[in-house]
Design a protein around this nucleic acid. Structure first.
Lengths: 161, 161
DNA sequence: ATGGGTGCAAACTGTTTGCAAAGCA
DNA sequence: TGCTTTGCAAACAGTTTGCACCCAT
């Protein structure tokens, strides 16, 4: 559990302004929850509920819109675990690296892995965290050069076949 | 595009029987689509549509149920890309290893990475596939020992806080 | 007063479920 | 026959959208 520093807040405010957006109360509160929760990942619903305690008039749609915006501006990471609803996590400076997660098939919890390890990672995970790895998944998110130049053939390809 | 071998079919049939399930026509057809499509990943809807061509009476719910079953028996891998609907891919013998994917932010396509590479992977991906990596994600799917023994505290933890 | 931002409720979309009928062993 | 599996339609859950209002500049 970590607190939102005024430094972090300013940075985000700045980023928003750069792109023509404002740092509203709702956005600040969303950010706060995300930073506090930075060991795990939160769903939109969870954020909504937490904010509601201090600011009961907030709307769920606003939270969704804020999270979309934050994703766009890379303030937040968006994850689709096999766990029904999408989860979001704050992107600290450091965490440009690949985060790894333990996703428990039984309880559905999502825990970040200590970082730095990698090829021996699985062994670590099993020994030190008591987590039996059944499966793993490594994804790269990015863009094909061709897509970026709007010469993207794949749109069509996807449907056909 | 690969064809379903009778060997593969038998193997699956066997696996099903072992667990008390039958290899029905619908299940066989679902398998067929999955194997044919083994370079990428397919959604339930896509499978449904393909089967419908030869077997118009199939129901979407059946496809979902079949995919659940196949996941359970590890015949299939289930992926949640940030791409709205869940995608499924056939698990060949070999592919016990971590599959890596390129997920294009622009066109949404999902492509498997050649395997075997890994730490230099990102460089390869960028140079050889023209894919600019913006982000990556490594997940382990499995279970905590404690969860497996039904002593799982995390259920409660998830709500509270 | 002008434009973005918000809350609400309704719409949407992917997935799940209940049930009666059908299919196998 | 007994037990699984299926198709259909209705139910659900997470997310998105349209719109009138609100707020800050």
């Amino acid at each position: 559990m970590m607190e939102l520093s005024s430094d972090q807040l300013n940075q985000v405010a700045h980023k928003l302004q750069l792109h023509g957006y404002k740092l509203t109360k709702q956005r600040a509160m969303t950010l706060e929850v995300l930073v506090e929760e930075d060991t795990g990942y939160v769903t939109a619903e969870e954020i909504f509920m937490k904010i509601k305690r201090n600011y009961s008039s907030i709307g769920l749609a606003t939270v969704y819109r804020t999270l979309d915006l934050f994703s766009e501006l890379r303030i937040v990471r968006k994850f689709a675990f096999n766990d029904k609803s999408t989860r979001f996590g704050f992107r600290g400076e450091e965490s440009e690296h690949s985060p790894s997660h333990l996703i428990c098939k039984d309880c559905g919890s999502v825990e970040k892995v200590n970082e730095a390890w990698l090829s021996e990672l699985e062994r670590h995970v099993s020994r030190e965290l008591g987590f039996q790895v059944l499966d793993q998944q490594l994804d790269f998110i990015g863009t094909y050069a061709t897509c970026h130049e709007k010469k993207c053939k794949r749109w069509e390809e996807r449907i056909g076949g």
